[in-house]
């Protein structure tokens, strides 16, 4: 497994995409640092990139990468190695590459110009969302035999989780505005990894507004480490679950 991962990583880290993506993130971060006069404004602007752009790029890149490597994957499958190892080495290579791009592209400017806890959280959220959407992309890839279709599914999932879903939730709370909705809304938010990442950021940036909730549950959820643990834990589940299903499909798939 580690051997396979080593070579897969070597290949992907040398790819032109890895370089372009890192430079792109770095340029974005540098320009945001230049125009913003304080750190929390930086994290606000970077947050939009993390929540929108990073999942999009992760989803599209991971799908393309899978299909570009399909023949190689087939060759690997003809070797005396386990299928799961072939899959996991490809998966981890993609996740590690995407994470390194974020760490370098965003992390270096942060080291140069300073960071606070919200920016550190942001890095973690970016890495987790990369892993989640790589999982979605791999799942879409192993379930279809057509690259265009797989990219379509990945993009669809991205649009769904970053836009459509929130629209539904907004519609839902608007329609049932007369009922106490806090818990339902929180539960709905848990069902969307992008929202979860956003809530983790809200807990850093907008804690004063979140504390306006009635009820001890929310006071506790948002102010203590409990909320952080629950949201973080649920994100972990989101990270594992598409990847796990993709692995299961991969093990039974014909090539």
């Amino acid at each position: 497994m580690l051997k396979l991962l080593k070579y897969a990583l070597y290949d992907i880290l040398k790819s032109r995409f890895a370089l372009i993506y890192t430079v792109f993130l770095a340029l974005v971060a540098i320009s945001i640092y230049q125009v913003s006069d304080d750190l929390s404004k930086v994290s606000l602007s970077l947050m939009n990139i993390m929540i929108m752009i990073v999942p999009l790029i992760s989803a599209v890149f991971a799908t393309t990468h899978f299909y570009n490597n399909l023949e190689f994957i087939e060759l690997m499958l003809a070797q005396p190695v386990k299928r799961s190892q072939v899959f996991l080495s490809q998966l981890f290579a993609v996740i590690i590459m995407l994470s390194l791009s974020i760490l370098i592209g965003f992390g270096l400017p942060m080291m140069l110009w300073g960071a606070d806890s919200s920016l550190i959280t942001l890095l973690a959220v970016g890495i987790i969302l990369s892993a989640v959407f790589t999982g979605f992309a791999f799942l879409a890839s192993v379930m279809t035999r057509d690259k265009a279709k797989a990219i379509g599914i990945s993009l669809g999932l991205w649009i769904y989780f970053s836009l459509v879903y929130d629209g539904f939730v907004l519609y839902f709370i608007y329609s049932f505005a007369d009922y106490p909705l806090e818990k339902a809304t929180l539960a709905l938010v848990m069902l969307n990894p992008v929202d979860l990442g956003r809530i983790l950021m809200l807990m850093q940036l907008d804690i004063s507004a979140l504390m306006g909730y009635t009820g001890a549950f929310f006071q506790k959820f948002f102010s203590s480490s409990m909320g952080l643990l629950i949201a973080g834990g649920t994100l972990m589940v989101w990270m594992l679950f598409p990847n796990f299903f993709a692995l299961r499909v991969f093990r039974k798939r014909d090539f």
Binding site: Y10, D11, E71, A78
Partner: peptide, 12 residues
Amino acid sequence: YMPQIGRYPQNM
């Protein structure tokens, strides 16, 4: 095994 069209990681 020798595949019909071998395709390998580009940067390897």
